[in-house]
Design a protein around this nucleic acid. Sequence first.
DNA 1: GTCTATACGAAGATAGAC
DNA 2: GTCTATCTTCGTATAGAC
Lengths: 191, 191
Amino acid sequence: MGTDSRERMVRSAAYLFRERGYSGTAFRDVIAHSGAPRGSIYHHFPEGKTQLAEEAVRYAGEFLNAGILAATESGDAASAVDAFVGWWRTVLIKSGFRAGCPVVAVTIEANDDAPQLAAAAAAAFGRWQDTLATGLENAGVPAGRASRLARLIVAAVEGATVLCRAHRDVAPLDDVVAELKDLARAAVTDG
Amino acid sequence: MGTDSRERMVRSAAYLFRERGYSGTAFRDVIAHSGAPRGSIYHHFPEGKTQLAEEAVRYAGEFLNAGILAATESGDAASAVDAFVGWWRTVLIKSGFRAGCPVVAVTIEANDDAPQLAAAAAAAFGRWQDTLATGLENAGVPAGRASRLARLIVAAVEGATVLCRAHRDVAPLDDVVAELKDLARAAVTDG
DNA sequence: GTCTATACGAAGATAGAC
DNA sequence: GTCTATCTTCGTATAGAC
């Protein structure tokens, strides 16, 4: 099935970008990892690697957003933090601190030749922030504050994953999460 | 002067990594940007690109640490946040949101072939955190809390620079800074 | 849709002269 | 310390057959 190998390639790209970055991931790596047929790359992605990366960013954005959405449905403000952090914690530990966020990787390596990549990354970050903000509002955080707090959560957790990779340790993420949870809880009563 | 071109290469590498990342920056780019002689690369850096990157990370780490140290000498807790943020704000805006942190770039693209790179990055992040923590302590934040808060500042600001690059806007950094300053100020009285 | 073959360029690294 | 020339590998992309 053609559509199937196309999707596998997108998922594999997102997976590999986490460990090797955008420039560090070659087309052949995506082919090898996905098991997709080599000859159909430019059939499925006529714009080449840029198009593949753009779709990988979009895929990662939607994937994580679905997770945040599901996790924020339950409850309190602190659980909104967990919603975003849980996935990264698992990825970091399972990979031996070799894998991070593919959206960050693409953002950092994007250049003026491919402005679509920065745009796709901004869309992903924006969606995560919005979904988290809604979760915080539902937990009782005022709207304006919720948006700002959600942005801090996205920034701090993404930054913490980078620190974890450098230190090869989850401690930075745990420290950051502890601070963020206190802050989120306080934001409810502070009104 | 040989030592001089060596140092220029290290500085240029740090500069270029900010925009193009590690894999995206070729040796020839470093030569061109630094004006260093092409033939002396492997004389100065016998271990090749890895060694150059390691020293560039170290250089960036020391450079920024000196800035944090100078800025935290004056004062209050909120100024400790400014100490770390000021430099990134300038870099982002001056580059049209094309440049970020070279240490983050190297961390994300480092792989098992060169574990020195992750180690050098961890050292840089650790120094920034320690210097910030000392600044917070001097401002009246209890030692244990200061360390954790300093880590949050490093993570959140680094994460925010990535968001700024994606959005091509300083707003994410400003949002994050506002939250961090409130938090730092509150940490003083909270004892 | 998928294949092979190949063009084309870039990159890291080395050798040996000066 | 610096130069030029070169080796080797790799990576994207294309062409054209099946």
